[in-house]
Design a protein around this nucleic acid. Structure first.
Length: 569
RNA sequence: GGCGAGGUAGCUCAGUCGGUUAGAGCACUGGCUUCAUAAGCCAGGUGUCGCGGGUUCGAGUCCCGCCCUCGCUACCA
């Protein structure tokens, strides 16, 4: 048995997260974690908000809010969204409030410096006197030195598309205040990625298996790697350790340097809360740990290259990522999610009207696993109606209501010989049965969802073939045996359902008269004849209710219209 | 510009190391059934596998060229 340390990308505390983030980095991780737990693995699921960086300070100041309050608001907002989706981290924190975050981050910096993986460089950068800050390239506007187009951004000209050096823009101005910035010298530390690549990371990456998007992106980057600055001239962030400053003030670790260290410091926060201050080492410095980073594709360089380089470069026996199941992007009805263009699904309204677990399942079933994908209302309706309500929900009600009416609401009886016969029919003649969990472990979430639905469809075929409504009149014992078998299958479905839709699974479990958590018996082995039944005959069933409500066409059309209306303003 | 991914049925997509008549779901049509949330089951496909070449006994799959779509291009998360 391995130990799994699972992380989801730390959401940046500067704006709302949407379905795309959930589908890409949080929901798959939650499903993965729930499955591993049912399989008896030792798992820790870590996440928190990423709370430093220039964008946060600028927006907080524009709103006239202090930084800690600003990020606290987003931290709470994110948590609310995760709660509504049923995404349950073992620890949820934030890089500005996690107790030992600064300590860990500074320690990484010191160790990397001591091991010769940092370089100090002095460069000239544009400084805005009015805003009292060095300007990130994107905050510089000016005239493109190549094509004369204005305004061009400091990083790229929107007209000719060429890469620009902000310092070479003609007539530069600060995007925030409009004043002309001046060039000032500043000193920063750079992470020596080429050296780390040559020392170990290049080989490590080449010898490990990766998702194709990760291998493609990083493989390409490795060929032309530059040292990367990891400090900034700012107030908000983890201070550069004082002994490095030599009198200079106001330097902090670059947000992308300290953010992933949050995975470590938050693990330590959790362990400390459990009374084991050094317990984090068991997760981070024991080679039996499998470190799994769930992220969107925008985070690939950091999780598959920069952070591993840091982890290795400190020479403290940190484990390196075992898997980086990076997803692509999830769009909304043909366009990118966009807060500014109002192309969004307001979460409050969504959860007032729709079942959170149905949403979970649909996001899993349409996840951008290998290519960008999208949420469309039509697809959502199709998943809810065809897969969840018709195939799965209706299976439960057709079987259980029948039993309520004709078998006193108890699991009907079956004898050993009939078990053998019906096992054969169900398991061998009613369609292909797969293990959704096997696909989840391979990070094939869409296929896992598909397999789960297919497993439910098998039972519909079984019930139709055996036609218990006819048997009831001709052979009541056989009728009971058929319904018994259908109940057993429902119990199996409830367990298979649990990682995807934990509450629905629990309800189905209760409908079958089962006490305790549906997760308690663990993840089911693939059913084999004579080795899968668990229900004692005569168990009283619970109250039968519909698991999933169907969505009608008008309602869906209304949502599409509302989405477009919001975007029109 | 560079890099990457993709272009397969009306729609969404799956197709592993090249190997039978190219598959699934949805939608649609017909039949069966009546336990169930008007649910279920069975049956139904003439698809230039983006275009053009090439390699091969054999190409959706490999190679070359072209067209189209999208994303990324690491300093802004």
């Amino acid at each position: 048995m391995s130990r799994y340390l699972v992380t989801s990308a730390l959401p940046y505390a500067n704006g709302p997260i949407h379905f795309g983030h959930v589908a890409g980095a949080y929901l798959p991780a939650d499903v993965y974690v729930r499955l591993l737990r049912m399989q008896g693995e030792d798992v820790l699921f870590v996440c928190g908000a990423d709370e430093h960086g220039a964008a946060i300070t600028i927006n907080a100041e524009q709103e006239g809010v202090d930084y800690p309050s600003y990020v606290a608001r987003w931290r709470a907002e994110f948590k609310r969204t995760f709660d509504r989706f049923g995404i349950e981290f073992d620890v949820w924190s934030g890089t500005s409030v996690c107790p030992r975050h600064a300590e860990f981050s500074q320690e990484f910096f010191r160790r990397l410096a001591a091991n010769g993986y940092l370089q100090k460089r002095t460069t000239e950068q544009l400084y805005c006197v009015h805003d009292a800050m060095f300007l990130p390239d994107r905050y510089v506007l000016g005239t493109c030195p190549k094509c004369g187009h204005a305004p061009a951004r400091g990083d790229e000209c929107p007209s000719c598309g060429s890469w620009l050096d902000a310092a070479k823009l003609r007539e530069p101005s600060c995007k925030l205040c409009g004043n002309a910035p001046e060039l000032r010298e500043t000193t920063h530390w750079y992470l020596d990625l080429p050296k780390l690549r040559d020392a170990h990371i290049g080989t490590w990456f080449a010898e490990h298996e990766w998702k194709s998007n990760v291998r493609g992106f990083i493989g390409n980057m490795l060929e032309d790697l530059q040292p990367r600055p990891i400090t900034r001239d700012m107030k908000w962030g983890v201070p550069v350790p004082a002994e490095f400053l030599e009198g200079e003030e106001g330097k902090v670790l670059y947000v992308w340097f300290d953010a992933p260290i949050g995975y470590v410091s938050m693990t330590a926060e959790l362990c400390a809360a459990r009374g084991d201050a050094e317990g984090w080492r068991r997760w981070w410095q024991d080679p039996d740990t499998r470190l799994v980073h769930f992220i969107g594709k925008d985070n690939i360089p950091f999780h598959a290259l920069v952070f591993p380089s840091m982890l290795w470069g400190v020479q403290q026996d940190y484990v390196l990522p075992w898997a980086v199941p990076a997803n692509e992007f999830y769009n909304l009805q043909g366009r990118k999610f966009s807060t500014s263009a109002n192309w969004t699904l307001p979460l409050d309204e969504f959860f007032e009207s729709y079942d959170a677990e149905a949403a979970r399942f649909h996001l899993i079933a349409s996840m951008p696993e290998t290519a960008d994908s999208e949420f469309t209302w039509g697809d959502f309706q199709s998943t809810v109606n065809a897969s969840l309500a018709d195939t799965i929900g209706n299976l439960a009600t057709r079987v259980l209501r029948f039993i309520d009416k004709h078998f006193e609401g108890k699991v009907p009886s079956i004898d050993a010989a009939t078990c053998v016969e019906l096992d054969r029919v169900l398991l061998e003649e009613c369609g292909a049965i797969g293990d959704p969990g096997a696909h989840v472990r391979e990070f094939r979430f869409r296929r896992a969802a598909e397999t789960f639905v297919a497993n439910a469809a098998v039972a519909n075929v079984f019930v139709d073939r055996l036609a218990p409504w006819a048997l009831r009149k001709t052979d009541p014992e056989r009728c009971a045996a058929v319904l018994n078998t259908a109940c057993e299958w429902l119990a199996l479905l409830a367990r298979w359902m649990a990682p995807f839709m934990p509450h629905k699974a629990q309800r189905l479990w209760a409908m079958l008269g089962q006490a305790g958590p549906v997760t308690a018996p663990g993840w089911p082995q693939p059913p084999r004849p004579g080795a899968w039944r668990t229900l004692p005959c005569g168990t009283p069933l619970g109250e039968v209710e519909g698991l999933f409500a169907k969505l009608d066409d008008e309602r869906i059309a209304g949502e599409v219209a509302a989405l477009e209306a919001r975007a029109q303003g």
